[in-house]
Amino acid sequence: MAELTPISNTFATLRAENRLAFMPFVTAGDPDLAMTQDLIRGLSDAGVHLIEVGFPYSDPIADGPVIQASYTRALGGGVTVDGILKAVAEVNTDETPLLAMVSYAIVFRHGVEKFIADAKAAGFAGFIIPDLPGAEAAECFELVRSQGLDLVQLVAPTTPRERVQEILKSCSGFVYCVAVAGTTGERANVADALLDQLRWLREETDLPLAVGFGISKPEHVDPLRQVADGVIIGSGIVRQLEPTSDGQLDRNGAMQAIADLTTKMVNATSGS
């Protein structure tokens, strides 16, 4: 059997301890890369289990308004892929695997092989490419695996069960289970349909199941405890970085708010 990837290793450890993974998302370069570095360090120190780093893209159809606005702010600040890779390389997160959440438009423009190699060199352990679904990802999946990294695929509420095996062929690390149809954002409840889907997904695969899109608070964790292996929060974190109406961002306040949410989520996912 092949050696465990950093991401698989993290899930294996958590599973043995009967805990869920908590995986926050941050936009690289919002408001600047120094803050992103502080956030990655802070989140890692606070005990999150994996971190998704979003690469800002000009036309992000998979993301909701909060994350798109954050991408727009980051691009307005002049962030580039090379800048992100350099900033990430400077942050030592050996304890916490990092995933690149990145549009295929960006990966393709850089050259798929080169992007994967450069991201690996910067310390990324895996990739989520939300606009590279199912069989379209087959080639990219081989390249990612040959580097000993993971390519995570999404399963949506609209995904028919008969399509899942095709998706899983190009998926490793964990399955990103989209909680609600639609784009990322915060929602009030965890839907029954999601729980049903997680139960049949569990019958289809041994890969860990992580739930994102619409997860924003500790109360969302409990219903998922028996059916999922991890939870992802994106918009709930990113919105803390929205500047106030005067265009200013209270950096310390934002860091504090994110730290508070993180502590609650780490406790919720670790709690029994």
Binding site: I61, P133, P157, T159
Partner: peptide
């Protein structure tokens, strides 16, 4: 697969595939 030579295909979120 929606290919015109190498062009076309489907680069969209899974939510839309069905």
């Amino acid at each position: 697969l929606g290919r015109f030579g190498p062009f076309g295909r489907r680069f969209v979120p899974e939510t839309l595939m069905h």
